[in-house]
Protein backbone atom coordinates (compact mmCIF):
# COMPACT_ATOMS: atom_id res chain seq x y z
CA UNK A 1 0.00 0.00 0.00
CA UNK A 2 1.57 3.27 -1.05
CA UNK A 3 1.07 6.39 0.97
CA UNK A 4 -0.05 8.89 -1.63
CA UNK A 5 1.16 11.73 0.53
CA UNK A 6 4.76 10.91 -0.39
CA UNK A 7 4.30 11.09 -4.15
CA UNK A 8 5.08 14.75 -4.54
CA UNK A 9 2.82 14.97 -7.56
CA UNK A 10 4.36 12.30 -9.79
CA UNK A 11 2.82 8.89 -10.11
CA UNK A 12 5.34 6.13 -9.25
CA UNK A 13 3.32 3.67 -11.30
CA UNK A 14 3.47 5.55 -14.62
CA UNK A 15 5.71 8.58 -14.15
CA UNK A 16 2.77 10.76 -15.21
CA UNK A 17 1.82 13.88 -13.31
CA UNK A 18 -0.80 16.60 -13.23
CA UNK A 19 0.52 18.23 -16.39
CA UNK A 20 -0.25 15.03 -18.32
CA UNK A 21 -3.92 14.92 -17.36
CA UNK A 22 -5.30 17.31 -20.03
CA UNK A 23 -3.60 15.22 -22.70
CA UNK A 24 -5.03 12.02 -21.26
CA UNK A 25 -8.48 13.58 -21.22
CA UNK A 26 -8.29 14.43 -24.89
CA UNK A 27 -7.97 10.71 -25.62
CA UNK A 28 -11.60 10.34 -24.57
CA UNK A 29 -14.04 11.80 -27.07
CA UNK A 30 -17.79 11.70 -27.51
CA UNK A 31 -19.00 13.34 -24.31
CA UNK A 32 -18.15 16.96 -24.97
CA UNK A 33 -21.45 17.92 -23.35
CA UNK A 34 -19.89 17.07 -20.00
CA UNK A 35 -16.41 18.46 -20.66
CA UNK A 36 -17.01 21.31 -18.23
CA UNK A 37 -18.23 18.90 -15.63
CA UNK A 38 -15.14 16.77 -16.10
CA UNK A 39 -12.66 19.60 -15.78
CA UNK A 40 -14.37 20.90 -12.64
CA UNK A 41 -13.18 17.88 -10.69
CA UNK A 42 -9.66 17.70 -12.05
CA UNK A 43 -7.70 19.42 -9.29
CA UNK A 44 -9.57 17.77 -6.45
CA UNK A 45 -9.13 14.34 -7.98
CA UNK A 46 -5.42 14.86 -8.50
CA UNK A 47 -4.88 16.05 -4.94
CA UNK A 48 -6.84 13.07 -3.64
CA UNK A 49 -5.03 10.49 -5.74
CA UNK A 50 -1.57 12.02 -5.50
CA UNK A 51 -1.45 13.19 -1.90
CA UNK A 52 -4.39 12.13 0.27
CA UNK A 53 -5.83 8.70 -0.44
CA UNK A 54 -4.20 5.57 0.95
CA UNK A 55 -4.51 3.39 -2.14
CA UNK A 56 -2.87 0.44 -3.77
CA UNK A 57 -3.13 0.39 -7.59
CA UNK A 58 -1.62 -3.09 -7.62
CA UNK A 59 -4.34 -4.36 -5.30
CA UNK A 60 -7.40 -2.14 -5.73
CA UNK A 61 -9.45 -4.26 -3.31
CA UNK A 62 -6.94 -4.01 -0.47
CA UNK A 63 -9.18 -3.89 2.65
CA UNK A 64 -6.92 -1.31 4.26
CA UNK A 65 -7.40 1.18 1.43
CA UNK A 66 -9.24 4.44 1.77
CA UNK A 67 -12.54 4.46 -0.10
CA UNK A 68 -13.25 7.11 -2.72
CA UNK A 69 -16.79 7.26 -4.09
CA UNK A 70 -17.43 9.45 -7.11
CA UNK A 71 -21.10 10.29 -6.71
CA UNK A 72 -20.98 12.96 -9.40
CA UNK A 73 -20.69 10.42 -12.16
CA UNK A 74 -21.27 12.87 -14.99
CA UNK A 75 -18.19 13.71 -17.02
CA UNK A 76 -15.83 11.07 -15.65
CA UNK A 77 -13.01 11.84 -18.09
CA UNK A 78 -10.90 13.52 -15.41
CA UNK A 79 -11.50 10.55 -13.12
CA UNK A 80 -10.39 8.06 -15.76
CA UNK A 81 -7.35 10.19 -16.57
CA UNK A 82 -6.30 10.23 -12.92
CA UNK A 83 -6.89 6.49 -12.58
CA UNK A 84 -4.74 5.92 -15.65
CA UNK A 85 -2.02 8.19 -14.33
CA UNK A 86 -1.97 6.21 -11.07
CA UNK A 87 -1.87 2.89 -12.90
CA UNK A 88 -5.30 1.53 -12.05
CA UNK A 89 -6.11 1.26 -15.76
CA UNK A 90 -3.80 1.29 -18.81
CA UNK A 91 -3.52 4.59 -20.63
CA UNK A 92 -4.34 2.82 -23.88
CA UNK A 93 -7.78 2.03 -22.45
CA UNK A 94 -8.75 5.70 -22.56
CA UNK A 95 -9.42 5.93 -26.34
CA UNK A 96 -12.02 3.17 -25.98
CA UNK A 97 -14.18 5.59 -23.98
CA UNK A 98 -17.90 4.94 -24.37
CA UNK A 99 -17.44 2.14 -26.90
CA UNK A 100 -19.55 -0.99 -26.62
CA UNK A 101 -16.85 -3.25 -25.18
CA UNK A 102 -15.05 -0.56 -23.21
CA UNK A 103 -14.82 -0.62 -19.42
CA UNK A 104 -15.01 3.19 -19.53
CA UNK A 105 -18.52 4.53 -19.96
CA UNK A 106 -19.92 8.03 -19.84
CA UNK A 107 -20.80 7.14 -16.28
CA UNK A 108 -18.35 4.94 -14.37
CA UNK A 109 -19.19 1.36 -13.42
CA UNK A 110 -17.55 0.02 -10.28
CA UNK A 111 -17.94 -3.53 -11.51
CA UNK A 112 -15.88 -2.82 -14.63
CA UNK A 113 -13.14 -0.37 -13.67
CA UNK A 114 -10.39 -1.37 -11.22
CA UNK A 115 -10.23 1.08 -8.34
CA UNK A 116 -13.72 2.47 -8.85
CA UNK A 117 -15.78 1.86 -5.72
CA UNK A 118 -19.28 2.47 -7.12
CA UNK A 119 -21.16 2.86 -10.34
CA UNK A 120 -22.68 6.32 -10.52
CA UNK A 121 -24.48 8.63 -12.88
CA UNK A 122 -27.90 8.80 -11.29
CA UNK A 123 -27.39 11.64 -8.86
CA UNK A 124 -27.82 11.39 -5.13
CA UNK A 125 -26.67 7.80 -4.63
CA UNK A 126 -23.03 8.19 -3.62
CA UNK A 127 -23.28 9.98 -0.30
CA UNK A 128 -25.89 7.58 1.15
CA UNK A 129 -23.72 4.61 0.18
CA UNK A 130 -20.63 6.36 1.52
CA UNK A 131 -22.40 6.89 4.82
CA UNK A 132 -23.09 3.17 5.08
CA UNK A 133 -19.52 2.34 4.09
CA UNK A 134 -18.18 4.70 6.75
CA UNK A 135 -20.43 3.18 9.38
CA UNK A 136 -19.43 -0.32 8.28
CA UNK A 137 -15.73 0.49 8.49
CA UNK A 138 -16.20 1.99 11.94
CA UNK A 139 -18.12 -1.08 13.08
CA UNK A 140 -15.21 -3.21 11.85
CA UNK A 141 -12.71 -1.07 13.76
CA UNK A 142 -11.00 -0.09 10.51
CA UNK A 143 -8.82 2.99 10.25
CA UNK A 144 -9.67 3.50 6.58
CA UNK A 145 -11.26 6.77 5.55
CA UNK A 146 -14.13 7.43 3.16
CA UNK A 147 -14.21 10.29 0.68
CA UNK A 148 -17.24 11.07 -1.47
CA UNK A 149 -17.31 13.65 -4.26
CA UNK A 150 -20.66 15.25 -5.15
CA UNK A 151 -21.72 18.13 -7.36
CA UNK A 152 -23.44 21.33 -6.29
CA UNK A 153 -26.46 20.63 -8.49
CA UNK A 154 -26.50 17.03 -7.31
CA UNK A 155 -26.76 18.36 -3.77
CA UNK A 156 -30.39 19.18 -4.47
CA UNK A 157 -31.26 15.48 -4.27
CA UNK A 158 -33.19 14.61 -1.13
CA UNK A 159 -31.28 11.38 -0.69
CA UNK A 160 -28.11 13.42 -0.23
CA UNK A 161 -29.72 15.50 2.47
CA UNK A 162 -30.85 12.33 4.24
CA UNK A 163 -27.23 11.21 4.27
CA UNK A 164 -25.92 14.58 5.43
CA UNK A 165 -28.29 14.51 8.39
CA UNK A 166 -27.57 10.91 9.36
CA UNK A 167 -23.80 11.15 9.00
CA UNK A 168 -23.94 14.10 11.38
CA UNK A 169 -26.06 12.19 13.91
CA UNK A 170 -23.75 9.20 13.73
CA UNK A 171 -20.69 11.46 14.05
CA UNK A 172 -18.94 9.63 11.24
CA UNK A 173 -15.51 11.13 11.66
CA UNK A 174 -14.06 8.82 8.99
CA UNK A 175 -16.24 10.44 6.30
CA UNK A 176 -15.33 13.43 4.16
CA UNK A 177 -17.60 14.84 1.48
CA UNK A 178 -16.23 17.03 -1.27
CA UNK A 179 -18.64 19.31 -3.11
CA UNK A 180 -17.59 20.67 -6.48
CA UNK A 181 -19.32 24.05 -6.73
CA UNK A 182 -19.36 25.17 -10.36
CA UNK A 183 -22.60 27.08 -9.82
CA UNK A 184 -24.53 24.58 -11.88
CA UNK A 185 -27.48 24.29 -9.53
CA UNK A 186 -30.44 25.94 -11.23
CA UNK A 187 -31.68 27.66 -8.09
CA UNK A 188 -28.49 28.41 -6.19
CA UNK A 189 -27.65 27.90 -2.53
CA UNK A 190 -28.58 30.95 -0.43
CA UNK A 191 -26.30 31.01 2.58
CA UNK A 192 -23.79 28.73 0.92
CA UNK A 193 -23.55 25.00 0.44
CA UNK A 194 -21.40 24.33 3.49
CA UNK A 195 -24.07 25.81 5.77
CA UNK A 196 -26.30 22.84 4.89
CA UNK A 197 -23.68 20.53 6.28
CA UNK A 198 -22.77 22.72 9.24
CA UNK A 199 -26.28 22.76 10.60
CA UNK A 200 -26.16 18.95 10.72
CA UNK A 201 -22.97 18.96 12.75
CA UNK A 202 -20.29 18.62 10.07
CA UNK A 203 -17.04 20.52 10.14
CA UNK A 204 -16.68 22.56 6.97
CA UNK A 205 -14.09 24.14 4.73
CA UNK A 206 -14.58 26.35 1.69
CA UNK A 207 -11.65 26.54 -0.70
CA UNK A 208 -10.67 27.56 -4.20
CA UNK A 209 -11.14 24.46 -6.30
CA UNK A 210 -8.08 25.31 -8.41
CA UNK A 211 -5.74 25.85 -5.44
CA UNK A 212 -4.27 22.41 -4.88
CA UNK A 213 -2.46 23.46 -1.72
CA UNK A 214 -5.67 24.76 -0.18
CA UNK A 215 -7.56 21.65 -1.27
CA UNK A 216 -4.94 19.44 0.35
CA UNK A 217 -4.97 21.36 3.62
CA UNK A 218 -8.75 21.23 3.74
CA UNK A 219 -8.85 17.51 3.06
CA UNK A 220 -6.39 16.64 5.82
CA UNK A 221 -7.90 18.96 8.42
CA UNK A 222 -8.55 16.86 11.55
CA UNK A 223 -12.20 16.20 12.37
CA UNK A 224 -12.06 13.59 15.06
CA UNK A 225 -15.64 13.80 16.29
CA UNK A 226 -17.69 14.56 13.20
CA UNK A 227 -17.81 14.23 9.40
CA UNK A 228 -16.16 16.87 7.29
CA UNK A 229 -17.09 18.63 4.07
CA UNK A 230 -14.83 20.51 1.70
CA UNK A 231 -16.66 22.80 -0.71
CA UNK A 232 -14.43 23.63 -3.65
CA UNK A 233 -15.45 26.54 -5.83
CA UNK A 234 -14.47 26.54 -9.45
CA UNK A 235 -15.37 28.84 -12.30
CA UNK A 236 -19.08 28.77 -13.31
CA UNK A 237 -19.91 26.13 -15.90
CA UNK A 238 -16.50 24.54 -15.44
Amino acid sequence: MTNANSLNGVSPETGLDYEDLPRLMTLMTGDEKHSFSATSTLDVLWVLYSRVLKIDPGNPENPARDRFLLSKGHGPMAYYAVLAARGFIPVDTLPTFAQYDSILGKHPDGQLVPGVEIGSGSLGHGLPIATGVANGLRARGSGSKVFCLVGDAESGEGSGFEAIAMAGRLKLSNLTAIVIDNKSDSNGWPGGISSRFAVEGWSTADVDGRDQGAIYEALVTPHSDRPHVVVTSVEPDA
Binding site: G132, V133, N135, G136
Partner: peptide, 11 residues
Protein backbone atom coordinates in the same frame (compact mmCIF):
# COMPACT_ATOMS: atom_id res chain seq x y z
CA UNK B 1 -28.16 3.32 0.21
CA UNK B 2 -26.81 3.02 3.74
CA UNK B 3 -27.56 -0.71 3.82
CA UNK B 4 -25.78 -1.13 0.50
CA UNK B 5 -22.79 0.71 1.93
CA UNK B 6 -22.74 -1.67 4.89
CA UNK B 7 -22.93 -4.57 2.42
CA UNK B 8 -19.88 -3.17 0.62
CA UNK B 9 -18.01 -3.71 3.88
CA UNK B 10 -19.16 -7.35 3.93
CA UNK B 11 -22.09 -6.99 6.29
Amino acid sequence: GFAAGMAKESF
